[in-house]
Structures are given as structure tokens and as C-alpha cells.
Design a protein around this nucleic acid. Sequence first.
RNA 1: GGAGAUGUCGCAUAGUUGGUCUAGUGCGCCACAUUGGAAAUGUGGUAUACCCGCAAGGGUAUCAAGGGUUCGAAUCCCUUCAUCUCCGCCA
Length: 425
Amino acid sequence: MLDIKFIRENPDAVKRACELKGFTDYTDQILELDARVRELKTVTQSKTAEKNKITREIPTATDKAPLIAASKAIANEIANDMAELDEKEKQLTDLLHRVPQIPSDAAPIGRDDTENVEVRRVGTPREFDFTPRPQWDLLEMNGWWKPEKIASICGTRTYALFGEAAELELAIETYVLQKLMGKGFTFVSCPSITKPQTIFNAGHFMGTDPSVMANDVFMLTDTDRCLAGTAEIILNCLHSDEVLNEKDLPIKYAGFSPCFRKEAGAAGRDTRGIVRIHQFNKVEQYIYCTPEQSDEMHEHLLNNLCEVMEDLELPYRVIAACTGDMGFNKVKMNDVEAWFPSEGAYRELGSCSSIGQFQARRTNTRYRDKNGNMQFCATLNNTGIALPRAIVPVIENHQNPDGSINIPKKLQPLMGGRTKIGGKH
RNA sequence: GGAGAUGUCGCAUAGUUGGUCUAGUGCGCCACAUUGGAAAUGUGGUAUACCCGCAAGGGUAUCAAGGGUUCGAAUCCCUUCAUCUCCGCCA
């Protein structure tokens, strides 16, 4: 959420953000409610002050009855105003949670993902001197998956990897975690079960009505818990209600957790293969810093993911998401897409986001700056690596005619020194 | 899942027959004094959010959270949450 003071002072900037991002503009309603709320606060608070004064006189008064009566009378007046105040404040809070983060001036302006801008390409898609196989053929011929079997056991959009592919999955996770730890990230293995409030705090959803999550989030029946879609939401709450020291910033976390997505809006898309499933593992990069450090940290996070692409020896490109595609809570967003030979296209493997103070305001995560003033932290997040999706470009780009896969050099130590897997069937 | 205990201003604590508690004390921290410098000591200060105000300043709320009783709640009642101990179950 944004600071109400900022909205008060910069209504035009807020209106423009709503327009650029394609969200309903509630600015006028907010300002109206805000004015009324402040008016009611002024009235109720001065009446309360009056009542407190009378109340304090009662213990020592000789004739208590008139004072008690007076206090009661004021209490009744206050109650009426408070009822309206509560109501208006609720409405205001709900609307404040519907105001999008102001996008960066650097972000391209556009309506949806068709207007995203390619920032750069790194590496050249390999020219095969044979017909490359798609992920499903490679997984099949090497005995690395059993899609029908697993679907019959666990339902659609689930997966299991067997043998060397499972090893590869674990090796990639380990590789990325070790890389991030080497860059000062603290490894956190995160829970996947959480409270809905945790998800709200991340700012992916608008308003204060929990039912808006039902489409995207797996709720656990008969409990007040749900399955987390990403470790980001846990990491985002790690310092809620705390006051950090500026000298301790930035704080960097590498979260690892199973992630759960309903994928309700993706019916029919990516039904074949292991690109889009209900449960996957993800290493997530997360940073708390000062607003001044935010741009530098964004580049840091983005570069980390780019390095991972290069270590996995994948051709990739970096996208700048346009205002209409970046999402509700973001200042700016860069996607990193790897080359998928089977599709002849780049596809998203990670998404690097600057959130500004938007999440920290929801979680009440602050720091004391050099001058001793309280500030909200800025937060950023980026994928470290998401699996099994990342396996797809690895096996497709590094395949041989016999169906075997060359292991990227950096992964070889984690694969027992092997340079190649598969191709034996 | 069963039984019990606990939750106070950064930390540790005082406060439970409701009213000088707008929360005391110790430690920590900051400033000043003392000192050649430091330790020790002394004095003062030491939360956050919001409202009114140009400001100085004033006010409201917060003793885990929410609600209730009352003229008045840290103190009484209810609900929730968290922590600890024991039992049960279990990777």
C-alpha cells in the first residue's frame, strides 16, 4: 500500500499510476473518505479528552453523581461518532489496499505483455545438426518421468522425476543456493503452509477481502491455513513490526520451498511436459534495503539470475515488463527468459521485481536512518531458479542425437563429476 | 489431541481487593558534567502511530491481539494468538 499522505499530496501521480497499470482509480473516493475520517477523529478525540478529564476528577470529588452523569452523556456522543468512524476507516483501508504501487519512470508504458520491451539477448540459440527432441520425448526415452502414472495417482499438473533427472533437479537447486550463499545471502528453508494474511502482506492481491485469493491459492479445508505460492511471502514477513538498523541493510535471503499454484486461469496451456504444474520447487532471492539502495539491488538480483542462466549455458534474454504487465505492487519488473528449442521461443524462468516500500508498509518493516528517523524498508525479489521448469531448457539445449544430455560444466561437480546423463535406453 | 502455566515501554522485572499507573525500578542506549583520557559516578533524556497546529505545543490510542463490564481497566469477564512444561502421537 501507499502512504495516505503521499496520496493526499500527489493525487495526480496516483491517478496516472492507476491508468498506466490498468486498475480502477479510487483516488477521489479515498480523498473524500480521508477528509471525513480526519474530521471524525478530531471530534471524537477532543470529546474523549473532555471525558478523560471528568473521569480523572471523580475519585476526589465530593459529589460524584453529576460528574458520572456528564461523563456518560459524552460517552454516548462519542459512541455515535465512533460508529461512523469505524465504518469509514474500514472503507478507507480497503480502498487503500486497492491503490497500485507507482511504476518507475524507467518502465515502458504499455497495456499488457505484448508491449513488454526486450532489453538484451545473451547467447545464441544453438543450431542443431539433427532434429532436437522436445522435453517430453527426452524425459520419456530416458525413463525420467511417468506422466500418466503420476497423474492417475496425484491428479493433473503434478510431476515426478526419476533417476538422473531427479538428480539434476537437486543439483541445480543446490548449485543456485550455494552461489547465492557465496554472495552474502542467508539460506532459509521456508514453510509452505501459511496464513492467508501472509499472502496479503506480499501485496499480490487487492483490497482486504480474503475471497479474492480463492482463485489462485490452495486453501486447506477446515483450517485457517493455505499453501504458499512462493517463499517470497514468507521472507517478506521475516522482519514484520521490527525496526532494523540502517547499517545492517541490505539484508539478503535465499529462500527455498515447494511452491503451490492453482493455475486456474491456465486451463489448456502447457498441459504437456513439466513447465506448468501445481507444485514446484523454487529458490527465491529476497532483499530488504533502503529506498536509495533499491535500484542497485535490483541490478544485483537481476545479474544473479543472469549468471545462473550463463552457468547453465542457456541462451536467454532480459525483458522489461511494461506498466500494464508488471503487476499491482511493483515499481519495476524484469523477466529473464531462456531459449526453449522445442517451442522456438524464449520463455520465462524468473522475474525480478522492485516493490519499493509497498510491502514493508503492509508488514510494518522499518529501519532507523542515519538521522534517527523511521523509514519503511524497500523490498525486492527475484527468482533464483524454479524447478522443474528450468530443467526443460537445460535438457533441450544440451541434448545429443542419442537423447543423452551434456551436463553444464558448473553442475558437473554436483553430479558426481559426470559430463553426460541419459542416452542409454 | 489432552492437562497446566505464562504473555507489561530494547532486555529484565514491579504492579492482579479497578481510580495520584498519563506504568515504578534495574540494565542498556543518548546527551551533558566530572577526568589528562577512560572507567566509575552524577544529572537529564530515552516508544510508536494518528489527529489539531505555520510553529511552539496540545490531544487520542497502544501493558500479546480483539471484544465486553464500568464514570474509570495493565488490573475483572469472554474470544483468539503465541510461548513454556507434562502426557499422547509421529517423520
